[in-house]
Design a protein around this nucleic acid. Structure first.
Lengths: 211, 211
DNA sequence: GCGTGTGAACTGGTTCACAGCG
DNA sequence: CGCTGTGAACCAGTTCACACGC
């Protein structure tokens, strides 16, 4: 019965889950596919098809129970499993992330911070242990770090990614304005490139104007 | 001859363009679809198909001239057109973005910063003029701000987005851990939600382990 | 009537295959 | 021989349509 869930759908589940937590926090206990669709910039049809990968979880006629649906997604996606995370690059963005309590709440434990600048390592005070970037690979192995966050300058991003991969992480989130690619199969890379997204918006604007 | 370019392809163009700039900076003057594909986590076939929307720009047998291809993409996507940008939320992330010179280099002019905390507005020194969040909509209109960057806490994100939209922006980049959706047609929203991406990586890890 | 669940039709994007040129 | 350009085949995801239950 459990068909193989497409990657795209798994990504949508994360987004849906995010919406559900918000609804829950806002005291909403039931939600329809149409509402979810509008919140996620998608159609009700699409949402229903995706949720059906979870099996029957909705109540015909009255939508989904928010808590129940969230629980089902969490089960299927393994959201109850905590993951270890490390942040490389402790400039403004990196150090801001270190302090962000949302990670903890969402099930991610930041277990290390890295920077190549020893000055920063000495100045910065944090509950999270900080290490020089040169030792990154070793610590990733030692601490069993599963996900690496790249917040270094673009020029150092590729090198940084390589060190994480050498240490054996399963996933990377890249924040620098560079597209990081990893040849190795099975490692998931997500590029959150602000400049790239701005350019994309720009191109859509020009396309829209032309039309 | 110019077919309508799919949105997905436009997004890829931004990524390809990013790669090309890097190659150019590294002194690489020619590049093949296979190399581009591996750098972007895509196939050579796919890349070629996408580039073909630009018309014939490659040289059969020897790949693409990096500068020429970059120029063609820039023309089609309108990358030479500068856009005005504003940042809402001047916490650690927002203020880091204010100082980031990459925006300027990529053709985006940060013309305003907003925060609801007047203390921050007074303390923070920046070349960019700063205004209280309550005046956001007005300044967006006055300064013709085209793209809004949301770096406020998740709870304020929806409200912030609404103010930008009321001011008439064409696009939004949301950095907060909330999926922002805009009902209004024609407004482009990009959610760069770190927590959501981490969860997605988590789900892929669990899926991979199961398989 | 509203909203889910689901099969059928459709659309678009990806992969395959190969002609053609340096 | 390598690599682009492109038509054909393929496949996945989206949309459509509707039965069924509240």
């Amino acid at each position: 019965m459990t068909r193989k869930i497409p990657v795209k759908t798994l990504h949508r589940f994360s987004m849906i889950y995010c919406c559900l937590l918000e609804s829950l926090a806002a005291g909403v206990s039931r939600i329809s596919s149409r509402i979810l669709g509008s919140q996620l910039g998608s159609t009700a049809d699409s949402i229903r098809k995706e949720i059906n990968y979870l099996g029957e979880v909705g109540d015909v006629g009255s939508g989904y129970d928010v808590a129940k649906l969230a629980g089902r997604i969490s089960d299927v996606c393994g959201f109850e499993k905590r993951r270890t995370v490390a942040i490389a690059g402790l400039g403004k963005v990196g150090s801001a992330l270190l302090e962000n309590p949302e990670f903890e709440n969402a099930g991610f434990d930041i277990v290390a911070g890295f920077d190549s600048n020893t000055n920063i390592l000495e100045t910065l005070t944090s509950k999270v242990p900080l290490y020089p970037a040169s030792e990154l690979t070793d610590w990733v192995k030692k601490l069993n770090i599963e996900i690496g966050i790249i917040a270094v300058p673009p020029s150092a991003a590729a090198d940084c990614a390589a060190r994480f991969v050498a240490g054996g992480v399963s996933g990377l989130v890249n924040f620098s304005s560079t597209t990081v690619a990893v040849a190795q199969k099975g490692i998931i890379v997500r590029n959150l490139d602000m400049i790239c997204e701005l350019r994309f918006i720009n191109s859509l604007m020009t396309a829209n104007q032309k039309a």
